[in-house]
């Protein structure tokens, strides 16, 4: 038994042996693994359909007792990794299944691949960085919840799906690629930046908060053009993103913005800023 904590825990996915049933891997968070020895980690319960299995059945485990986790392989069918995490760091080398980083309150998750639906849903803190595409409802709410994301940062280098940042109350989401419909649906506060193109009904039902667009979206009739101005914070913010390694080509273009306010069907105190170059 080693007394020293190791640098990193590496979990290598063995695959589902042809099964298309998703694997629910809730214990894969730094909070659970950081105090555990390797044999304990291998014995952690995961759920494969209605069957309880062991983490060791599906992953080879290297390292122990660390809050730094590296997960390798095509994890498209693996759900709940990093869900509810409070601290530490997870690096995913490959695609990842649903609910990654959902309800997380701290720490960092970095995904070198695509994430499925509900990435960072209802998160309250921490950083979720998706190098590939995100599925639907990134940073949004689960059914019935009053609020989606309530804090933290989601960076998506690829595209986002439907309802990015729905019901958002606080925090920041940046999408470098395109997004689908209902971005910022019914949001009450917080900021969403979309550098690519947007689907329909951007900001539908928003009460407060900001959505910053670099392509002109189809504006809902319930938004009203109020002004054109030059917000200083946007280029500063984009440069700070660049400094962190999130490359943005729009920095030079981000000078003049038209400001729409809405949604008049609700409180109407939200804003959509559209870059005019």
């Amino acid at each position: 038994m080693t007394a020293q904590p190791m640098e990193e825990i590496v979990l290598t996915f063995k695959g589902t042996r042809g099964s298309t049933i998703p694997l629910e891997a809730d214990p894969i968070t730094p909070d659970v693994l950081q105090l555990k020895f390797r044999p304990e980690i291998e014995r952690l319960p995961l759920y494969h359909g209605n069957e309880q299995v062991l983490l060791g059945d599906f992953f080879t485990v290297k390292g122990e007792r660390s809050n730094q986790i590296r997960v390798q392989g095509d994890l498209s069918l693996v759900k709940n990794i990093g869900a509810g995490m409070q601290a530490g760091r997870i690096v995913v080398e490959g695609n990842i299944g649903m609910h990654v980083g959902a309800r997380m309150s701290g720490g960092e998750i970095e995904i070198h691949g695509n994430a499925d639906d509900w990435a960072g849903a209802e998160m309250t803190g921490g950083l979720l960085w998706i190098k590939g595409n995100a599925g639907n409802r990134a940073g949004s709410a689960y059914r019935g919840s009053k609020y989606g994301m309530r804090g933290g940062v989601i960076l998506i280098e690829g595209s986002g799906g439907h309802e990015v940042g729905g019901y958002m109350r606080r925090g920041l989401i940046v999408v470098r690629g395109d997004v689908e419909d209902h971005t910022g649906a019914r949001m009450v506060a917080g900021s969403i930046f979309v550098l690519g193109r947007l689907g329909a009904r951007t900001g539908g039902g928003m009460k407060r908060g900001s959505i910053v667009c670099f392509h002109t979206p189809d504006m809902l009739p319930t938004f009203r053009l109020t002004s054109t101005y030059t917000p200083l914070f946007i280029p500063i913010f984009l440069r700070s993103l660049q400094a962190r390694g999130f490359s943005v080509s729009e920095v030079q273009r981000a000078r003049h913005f038209t400001r729409y306010c809405g949604d008049m069907a609700e409180l109407g105190k939200g804003e959509i800023l559209v870059c005019q170059g």
Binding site: R201, P221, T222, D263, A265, E266
Partner: peptide, 10 residues
């Protein structure tokens, strides 16, 4: 329909 309902509500 979505646009119409929003409009009516406004």
């Amino acid at each position: 329909d979505y646009e119409v309902f929003s409009t009516l509500t406004a």
